[in-house]
C-alpha cells in the first residue's frame, strides 16, 4: 500500500500534465527506512519523448548523493504514460533497477480531464545484461491523505 499526501499527488499530476505529450518522470524521497514519501523531486526526461523516459544522468547522480547525504531513501519513482494506461510496460519493468524496492507510480494523461494515478511494486528478478529480468508487477492500493480541516 502507498500512503501519500494529496499535495504530492497534485505535484506529480501537474508535472505529468505540464510535460504532456512527452513523458514526465521523477521521484519522491523520504526518511530512510520509513516508507514515507515527503520530498518531491521532478527530473528531466533526457529523452524528451512521448513513448520513453530516462532520468538525465547528471541529475540522477546529484539525486543519489542528496539521498545519501540527507539519510533518505527513494520512496516513489514516478513517470507518465501519455497515450496508454497507467500500468508498467515491459520496458518499465526491465529498467526498474535503480530503486528496486520503491513504489512505482504510473500516471496516465491520455484523457484530457481525468488523470489515472496507480502504484505498483516490481518484485523479484535479477539484474542481468543491464536489465531487470524476471521481475513481477504487483499493483497496490493508493491511500491519499487529504489535508486536515
Amino acid at each position: 500500500m502507498l500512503t501519500i499526501a494529496r499535495a504530492l499527488v497534485d505535484q506529480i499530476v501537474a508535472h505529468a500534465r505540464a510535460d504532456h505529450p512527452d513523458e514526465a518522470c521523477g521521484v519522491v524521497t523520504g526518511p530512510a527506512g520509513a516508507d514515507r514519501p515527503v520530498r518531491f523531486v521532478p527530473m528531466t526526461n533526457a529523452e524528451r519523448s512521448p513513448t520513453f523516459y530516462k532520468f538525465d544522468p547528471v541529475e540522477l547522480l546529484k539525486l543519489d548523493r542528496e539521498v545519501d547525504d540527507l539519510d533518505e531513501e527513494i520512496v516513489i519513482v514516478y513517470h507518465s504514460h501519455t497515450a496508454t494506461e497507467a500500468y508498467p510496460s515491459r520496458t518499465d519493468v526491465s529498467y526498474a533497477a535503480y530503486a528496486p524496492d520503491a513504489h512505482y507510480v504510473l500516471v496516465s494523461t491520455r484523457d484530457e480531464t481525468e488523470t489515472e494515478f496507480r502504484s505498483f511494486r516490481i518484485v523479484g528478478g535479477d539484474f542481468e545484461g543491464g536489465r531487470r529480468v524476471g521481475a513481477e508487477v504487483v499493483e497496490e492500493e493508493v491511500v491519499v491523505v487529504e489535508p486536515a480541516g
Binding site: 523516459y53 530516462k54 530503486a99
Partner: peptide
C-alpha cells in the same frame, strides 16, 4: 567511481 543503473522506461 559511481555505478548507477539508468532510471528509464517506456
Amino acid at each position: 567511481v559511481t555505478i548507477l543503473p539508468a532510471v528509464a522506461g517506456g
